[in-house]
Each structure stands twice: as structure tokens, then as C-alpha cells.
């Protein structure tokens, strides 16, 4: 397979996942906002968290005067400036799907193409009511679910499939690690246990893991337990550990279970990640080490993305060509 095609499959998948997750996070926060509307400062703080997770707080303040709902919705969904806005990530998905049409099911292209074509008709936020925004965010999620379904139901489990899956899992792992990192910072600044409790509850909701968590653990939030769950659980499909396990499986299939001179760096990092994203490892950490560890986890995911791309020549490196 052409490196350029593999690169497109990988980024199509990552941006599809990103689109879905950002839509989910925004809709969660919009619902939460209704309940906390009295505490103005807390709400503002919450929005900054969302901006940190989905895009960039700094870029936002550069582009807009104030943290207001319509500005935030505009930035996260319609802004052309924000590379992670829905309009942009959907365009990237569609463009990559168009490049790789020969390697993906036709229905997958149609699903994203149809959604992309419906984009310009959606009114700009200025006149956008909350129900309109919720409807739109729901459309995004449905599109993404349909796309995921098409892939799972109809794609042969060979090269294109593995590249797409690796992209999706890596995107998820990175997002969960980022959410943990951001909320840990926030929790450190929390003045009382109620705010702390609310923050970790949000973290679970943003990862769409609240239901699974409360099915297993007591309804009183225990921050350590949340961190462990999101980082090391082997059965929850958005925990970092679960994603890394599946990346590992896909890599083994790509490489026929062999380690070669060009792939050892990738294997070595995966090994490290498998060791670190484990309950035993977490238990061995001192409390003051946790903050650094969460940042490092996020960086591991980012680093893996780079090494993966280099291994399969996804990034132009003229010197080796």
C-alpha cells in the first residue's frame, strides 16, 4: 500500500473519532451548563476546561473577546481558524475518504460525503438556538456511529482496516489521557470536595464512561478510582489501556508478529506503555508523582503517533527515500 494512502486512512480515522468526541464533550457541557448557571465563575472555568480538551484556550482568546456561549460554539463547530472545529475535522475526514476511495467501502464515503454536503445548510451560531445545536451535535454522533458500523460490518481485516483502527484507538487513548491530565490539574485547584466531585464526574462523562463506572463502583466519587479506571481498565473501550492493547494487536497483524529493524522502536514504546498503563504500576507511584505521570502518559501517546508514522513512512522523510 502507498504510504500516502496509509497516511490518509490513518488521519481520516483519527479525525472521525475527534469529530465524534468533541461533539460529545460539547453536548455534555451544554447540558451541565443548565444546572450550574448560577455560579458564573465556575461555568467560565468549565468552558476553559472544554477548550483545553477540544482545542486551545489560547487560540480561542486570540480570536474572540470573551468566553460566551455563542463564541465557544462558533469556535468549536464552525470556525475555519480552529483546525479542530467540526467543520474542519469533517472536511479532513471527507477529503481523506475521497483520496482513499479505492480502499474503503463505498458506503463509508457516502456517509461522510452526505454529512459534509449538509454542513453549509446548517445556520451559523448567531441565530442558533440550543435545541438547534443539540440537534446538530446529535447528527454528528449518528454519522460517526454509522461510519464506525460500516467499517466493522463490511471491511476486510487487512492493511487499510488496521491503519484505520490504529488511528481511531490512538486518537481515543490520547483524548482520554488529555482529559485525565486536564482534570487532575483542575482537581488540584479545587477548594472543597464538592467541586472536586463535580470535576471528576465531568471527566467520566466526557469520556462517556459514567455509566460503566457507576455500574461497578460506589456512587461516591473516588478520584484515584476514576484515574485507575480511565487509565488501566482492560474492558472499558475508552480507557487508555484498552486502546493500547488493541493497537498492539493491530501492529502484530501488520507485522506478522515479527520485530524488524524498522519496527523495533515502535514495539519498544508499546512495551513501555503496556507496563505503565497497569494497575500495579499506578499503585507503585507516590502521590506527588501522579501529576507528572499523567502528563507523561499523554506525551507517550503523542510520541507513539510520531514513531508509528515514521515506521510506515507516513511522513515525508526525503533522506530515507
Amino acid at each position: 500500500m502507498l504510504s500516502r494512502v496509509a497516511d490518509s486512512l490513518y488521519w481520516m480515522s483519527r479525525n472521525g473519532e475527534r469529530t465524534e468526541q468533541n461533539a460529545h464533550i460539547l453536548s455534555m457541557q451544554l447540558i451541565k451548563m443548565l444546572e450550574s448557571s448560577e455560579q458564573e465563575t465556575a461555568a467560565q472555568d468549565d468552558w476553559e476546561t472544554v477548550l483545553d480538551i477540544c482545542s486551545s484556550k489560547e487560540e480561542f482568546s486570540f480570536l474572540y473577546n470573551s468566553i460566551q456561549l455563542d463564541n465557544i460554539v462558533d469556535y468549536l463547530t464552525f470556525s475555519k481558524e480552529n483546525v479542530n472545529s467540526t467543520v474542519n475535522t469533517v472536511s479532513i475526514v471527507r477529503e481523506n475518504a475521497r483520496i482513499t476511495r479505492n480502499h474503503i467501502p463505498n458506503e463509508l464515503w457516502e456517509v461522510w460525503n452526505e454529512f459534509y454536503l449538509s454542513l453549509p445548510k446548517i445556520p451559523q451560531t448567531v441565530n442558533c438556538s440550543l435545541p438547534d445545536i443539540h440537534f446538530f451535535l446529535n447528527q454528528i454522533k449518528k454519522t460517526s456511529f454509522t461510519a464506525t458500523g460500516v467499517v466493522d460490518a463490511s471491511m476486510a481485516r487487512d492493511l487499510p482496516y488496521h491503519f484505520m483502527k490504529i488511528g481511531r484507538w490512538l486518537e481515543r487513548a490520547e483524548k482520554t489521557a488529555r482529559i485525565l491530565h486536564v482534570f487532575y490539574q483542575k482537581s488540584k485547584q479545587a477548594c472543597d470536595t464538592t467541586t472536586d466531585d463535580v470535576a471528576w464526574r465531568s471527566a467520566l462523562q466526557f469520556v462517556n464512561g459514567a455509566d460503566t463506572y457507576f455500574n461497578r463502583f460506589s456512587p461516591i466519587i473516588n478520584p484515584d478510582c476514576v484515574i485507575k479506571f480511565l487509565l488501566t481498565d482492560v474492558s472499558f473501550p475508552r480507557s487508555v489501556r484498552y486502546c493500547v492493547d488493541h493497537i498492539w494487536e493491530a501492529i502484530k497483524k501488520l507485522e506478522n508478529e515479527k520485530v524488524s529493524h524498522y519496527s523495533w522502536r515502535m514495539y519498544a514504546l508499546l512495551d513501555t506503555m503496556m507496563t505503565e498503563f497497569h494497575e500495579d504500576y499506578l499503585n507503585s507511584l507516590a502521590e506527588e508523582e501522579m501529576e507528572y505521570f499523567l502528563l507523561q502518559s499523554l506525551n507517550r501517546c503523542i510520541e507513539f503517533g510520531k514513531i508509528f508514522s515514521e515506521t510506515y513512512y507516513l511522513m515525508e522523510r526525503e533522506s530515507i527515500m
Partner: peptide
């Protein structure tokens, strides 16, 4: 394969395409 110019390279008058396996 559907290739673009940047997917091809000529070395010693032989044309190659750049794949994930070299």
C-alpha cells in the same frame, strides 16, 4: 494503484512507488 507524482521516485532510471514497506 492510484498514485500521485509525489508517490513516485526515479533512481538510476528506474521508477519506484513509495509504500509502507519501502
Amino acid at each position: 494503484s492510484l498514485v500521485e507524482g509525489r508517490d513516485l521516485i526515479v533512481k538510476d532510471k528506474i521508477v519506484y512507488m513509495k509504500t509502507i514497506r519501502g
